[in-house]
Amino acid sequence: MLVHPQFDPVALNLGFLQIHWYGLTYLAAFGLFYWLATRRIRQPPYAAGGWTPREVEDLLFYGVMGVILGGRLGYVLFYKPAYYLANPGEIFAVWKGGMAFHGGLLGVIAAMAVFAWVRKKRFFEVTDLVAPCVPTGLACGRVGNFINGELWGRAADASVPWAMVFPQSGSEIARHPSQVYQFLLEGLLLFVILWFYGRTRSAHSRPDGSVVWGRVSGLFLIGYGAFRFIAEYFREPDSFLGLLALNLSMGQWLCVPMVVAGMGIWVWAGRRA
C-alpha cells in the first residue's frame, strides 16, 4: 500500500514571495496551450485562414479570463450556492480554493464567443482550434491536485497495487489515486484523440471539399464528458454534496449535458450546408 508523499505545496519560498506548485501547473498549462495552438494554426484548414501567433496570444488572454472567472462562478453556483449566498464576500476569495471545470468550460465558451465576434471569425472555427490544445492543460491541473493531495479517490480494494493513503483525507483508508486516472484519461488520452483527429481530413471537410467547423469541438465535449464520468466512479464525492440521484456525483450529472451537446454539435456540423 502506497502513501501520498506529502509534497510541500510551496515550490519556491523566497520569504517575501511564495510560489506554489499549483500556480506553476497553471503556467505550464497556459504555456502548453500557446505552443500547441501556434502549431495548430499551421495545419489545414487554419494555414489558409490567415491565423497569426499574435491572434493566438490574444486568444490565450481571453481563455485565461474565461477559465478564472467561469471556474470560480461555476464552483459558487454548482457546488455551494447556499453558502456563498449567505457569505457573498467569499465569492472573490479565490486564494481559499474552489474552482469548477464545468464552470471554467462555460467561461471559456463565452470568452471564445467574444473573441470570435471581435475578430469576425466563425465561433466553431475558434473552438475547433482551441479544443485539441486544452487537454494538456487539464493534465497539468491534475498534477497540481496530486501534489496538493486533494480530490482524492474512493476507497480501493486491498488488491489494487497502486492504492494510496491520503493523510489529508483524515483516514488511513487506501484510496484510488483518482487524480492520476483523470490525468491519464481527460488529459493525455483525450489530447492524443483530439490532436490526431483534428489533423484528419474528415474533421474539417466534406466529400465535396467544403470546410466543416464544429466536429472537433463536439468530440471534445463527448470525450471529456465520457472520461470524466468514468473517473468520477473512482473519485470521492464532495463531502458537502455526496452522491445525488441515481448514485451519481455532481460531476457526473454535469457531464451528461456535455456529452449530449457534443453529440448534437458533431451531427449538426456534418449536416450543415
Rank of each mutant, 00 (worst) to 15 (best):
P207E: 08
H4M: 08
A47C: 06
P161E: 00
L27T: 15
A273D: 15
L184W: 06
M1E: 10
R154Y: 01
F16H: 13
G153L: 12
F166V: 13
M1V: 11
V134S: 10
M263G: 15
G251D: 00
W95A: 14
V108Y: 02
A29R: 01
L243T: 13
A37W: 01
Y233K: 12
L69P: 03
L59P: 01
L254P: 10
G144N: 10
E55P: 00
M250S: 07
E186L: 15
R271K: 15
V212L: 14
L129Y: 01
G153P: 14
L243Q: 10
L219E: 00
R72N: 03
W162E: 01
V192C: 08
L36S: 01
G218P: 00
G49L: 11
T38W: 01
N87I: 01
E57F: 14
Y75W: 13
G15F: 03
G74S: 08
A47I: 08
L244P: 04
Q252A: 03
G71C: 09
W51M: 01
K96N: 15
Y34N: 06
G104E: 04
I230W: 12
F92A: 15
Y197D: 06
N13L: 06
V143K: 12
Q179M: 07
A48F: 07
F16C: 00
A174Y: 12
F123Y: 15
M258I: 12
A269N: 04
L184H: 02
A116Y: 00
G223Y: 04
T38M: 05
I109S: 02
G49R: 15
V64H: 08
W152E: 07
G31K: 07
F61R: 10
G262R: 02
W213V: 02
P167T: 13
L129R: 09
L189H: 06
L27Y: 02
K80Y: 09
G137T: 08
I173S: 02
P207H: 03
R175E: 05
Q6I: 11
F30P: 00
R228S: 12
K96V: 09
V108T: 10
N148D: 11
N87V: 03
A93W: 13
A163M: 09
L27M: 12
Q182M: 15
R228C: 08
V130P: 02
L190W: 07
L189N: 08
S171C: 13
G153K: 12
G15T: 06
T127Q: 00
A163L: 09
N145I: 05
R39N: 15
A100N: 00
L151K: 10
L60H: 07
G23C: 06
I19S: 11
F234H: 11
L17I: 11
L248R: 03
P207F: 09
L138A: 08
L59Y: 01
G242L: 09
L241T: 15
L14V: 10
T52H: 05
I193T: 07
S217A: 12
I193K: 02
P167Y: 10
G218I: 12
A156H: 14
L129A: 04
A261Y: 00
H20W: 09
L221C: 04
M1N: 10
G97S: 08
L190I: 11
Q179V: 11
F92S: 13
G149T: 10
F101E: 04
L36P: 02
F92K: 07
A86Y: 04
E236I: 11
Q182G: 09
G49S: 14
L248N: 01
T200V: 13
F7Y: 14
A48Y: 03
R54D: 13
F191Q: 09
